[in-house]
Design a protein around this nucleic acid. Structure first.
Length: 583
RNA sequence: GCCGAGGUAGCUCAAUGGUAGAGCACGUCAUUGGUAAUGACGCGACAAGAGUUCAAUUCUCUUUCUCGGCUCCA
């Protein structure tokens, strides 16, 4: 039996209690499984149709059972006896579990004399140890039996459980905080993007502010790439199906939009990925080892027919833009190419303010060799290259067996945002498959044909998803270099409108890329300041009689408030420096 | 796609089997202002379709979209 912690025992016990309560309230309910999860527990039930409104009743019953101070008792039963018991009790899921466990004996747990559940262990000794103040049932959802969509859908009841009331409240407070930062809400409030019924689910449109934000992010990536010798290519968004026959995607990829059927022509598909296009472009030219590594990049949109229930804001869309890159290189260049990518990833994360991340080295599962293609020799080169490079960077890393793609090992970058939520961002993947399928070649130094390795790489992953993460990470208060509107100029009254416009012109003379807007509306200063604060504008510049006479401006910082009067020169320098330092 | 909950004005939210209210936003006018909301007036909505009913935003069904999960993410 594996060791469990106090909180796990408590959560596990609550799961049992939940099962007992549901059985009492709904005698026909069938028991599934009830594991411990982050922050609490859940239990799956068959033959149970309930909504959130019924949770208080179930919770009340759980409290009633717990308050009887019942001991938890565990016995080992022969599996056949337990199976027979559950068969009699009309608990088909439990019977199935016992059968699949294939053990001689199974644990059965009781409270007091009342039978509770099949159990592998890890609970408190007595229900009086349960912190009833720190627990609450929180939601009902559907879930497939044993996580397989071919199986029936069960009703899952989720509960939160902590040691104390304070921790529970803290958790709820954190969830509320996360909700305030929700990129879907901020996207609306800040006028960044929208999703329109008539256009379609998962197909976001960007307002000017959102478009400026995404262009800023994408241009930044393009700039950093080009500094490192990556070169742009351009590819069309539709293609003949033939391309995906070669790549093998047509059989395997199930999120493909159905093809366009054109009279007397081949079927055309909108592209759900870019790799095959990159491969074809490489193949059209003859390559010498002197040309390699060849670093092709394109920021381009893919279309994937994701299941409707999977769509969510910008994090899961049907039109996703990738900062895609494929490096074609000789196997011996793998290490240096990856080092180059890591260098860029480190720089990019720092500039975006992502200070907490780790790298997952996704390797083969050595027990399942047949799942992977390519020569073991190449795999060894690749896996070792990944390890060596990562271990030399000082980045936090962990190896994960069985997480490799079937065509090669990869590095996945896991980022923690300010709320401690983990996101998978960048990925670097070694690929031995596509060069093979597309029969890519280069001429090596001996004048012989050789096969290049392809390294796939995306730093943002998808621009849309990345923006969602950025929005939530900063709660919409973007650092100056990213803010879609960086400076508002607020004239005290329309008498100073001309002066305000002059200030804008002068600021633009210092930096013609500065995003500065004069708020001309006939409103009070207080109103415009409030508006600026709500819109999270980094700097508000206030101009009136004082400023016009003294040739100064007044500056208000989004966080620090009124900074007082300063010169345009000083303000402009401060802004320039801040943008340059990406703060 | 599956289970569940929802969709009222651009946004946030009311009410109702019998003419749908408010705040913000927007427009007009007045006001000419000093660091988080000036005032008055005005414009504006029951997701779509079908059914039940004398009458449907309200009840039923279908479609669609959103949300919480499940599954999936090459």
């Amino acid at each position: 039996m594996q060791k469990t912690t106090e909180i796990e025992n408590i959560r596990h016990s609550f799961a049992h209690l939940l099962a007992a309560s549901v059985q009492k309230c709904y005698p026909k309910a069938q028991l599934g499984i009830g594991p411990v999860i982050e922050n609490g527990f859940y239990y799956d039930f068959g033959n149970l149709q309930i909504t959130d409104e019924e949770l208080p009743r179930i919770e009340k019953e759980m409290r009633a059972i717990a308050s009887q101070d019942l001991p938890f008792k565990k016995e080992l039963w022969p599996s056949s006896k337990a199976a027979a018991h559950f068969k009699k009790e009309k608990q088909p899921y439990k019977v199935e579990l016992i059968k699949d466990l294939k053990t001689q004996k199974v644990g059965m747990v009781y409270t007091g004399n009342a039978f509770l559940d099949l159990c592998r262990g890890g609970h408190v000794k007595n229900t009086k140890e349960l912190p009833l103040e720190g627990f609450a049932l929180n939601k009902v959802a559907g879930a497939y039996w044993r996580g397989d969509e071919k199986n029936p859908m069960l009703t899952r009841v989720y509960g939160l459980a902590f040691l104390t009331k304070k921790e529970l409240e803290e958790h709820i407070r954190q969830e509320e905080e996360a909700q305030k930062r929700d990129h879907r809400k901020l996207g609306k409030d800040l006028g960044l993007f929208t999703i329109i019924d008539e256009i379609g689910p998962g197909l976001p449109l960007f307002y000017p502010k959102g478009a400026v934000l995404r262009r800023t992010v994408e241009n930044y990536i393009i700039e950093e790439q080009e500094k490192r010798g990556y070169v742009p290519i351009w590819i069309p968004h539709i293609t003949k199906g033939k391309l995906y026959k070669i790549s093998g995607h047509l059989d395997k990829f199930d999120a493909m939009y159905p093809p366009m059927k054109l009279k007397g022509e081949d079927d055309y598909y909108v592209k759900p990925m870019n790799c095959p296009h990159f491969m074809m472009l490489y193949k059209t030219l003859l390559h010498s080892y002197r040309d390699l590594p060849l670093r092709y990049t394109a920021t381009t949109t893919n279309y994937r027919y994701e299941k409707s229930g999977e769509l969510s804001g910008l994090t899961r869309v049907r039109a996703l833009t990738q900062d895609d890159c494929h490096v074609f290189c000789a196997p011996e260049d793998i290490e240096s190419e990856i080092r180059l990518m890591l260098d860029m990833i480190q720089k990019v994360y720092e500039d975006f303010g992502f200070h907490d991340f780790w790298v997952r080295i996704s390797l083969r599962d050595p027990k399942k060799r047949q799942q992977y293609i390519g020569f073991p020799k190449n795999w060894n080169i690749a896996e070792n290259a990944l390890r060596t490079v990562i271990q030399n960077t000082g980045m936090k890393w962990a190896e994960a067996l069985g997480e490799a793609a079937f065509y090669g090992p990869k590095l996945d970058f896991m980022m923690k945002d300010v709320l401690g939520r983990e996101w998978q961002l960048s990925t670097i993947q070694l690929d031995f498959n596509l060069p093979e399928r597309f029969e890519l070649e280069y001429t090596n130094s001996e004048g012989k044909k050789a096969r290049p390795v392809v390294i796939h790489r995306a730093i943002l992953g998808s621009t849309e998803r990345f923006l969602a993460i950025l929005i939530e990470h900063y709660a919409g208060a973007f650092p100056l270099w990213l803010a879609p509107e960086q400076v508002w100029i607020l004239p005290i009254s329309d008498k100073f409108l001309a002066f305000a416009k002059k200030i804008r012109e002068e600021l633009l003379q210092k930096d013609r890329n500065l995003r500065v807007i004069v708020r001309e509306e006939n409103e009070t200063l207080g109103k415009k300041i409030r508006e600026g604060q709500i819109q999270k504008i980094p700097y508000l510049v206030i101009v009136g009689e004082k400023e016009e006479q003294q040739g100064t401006i007044s500056v208000r910082d989004r966080q620090k408030g009124d900074l007082g009067q300063t010169t345009l020169e000083a303000f402009s320098n401060m802004v320039a420096e801040q943008i340059q330092r990406r703060q």
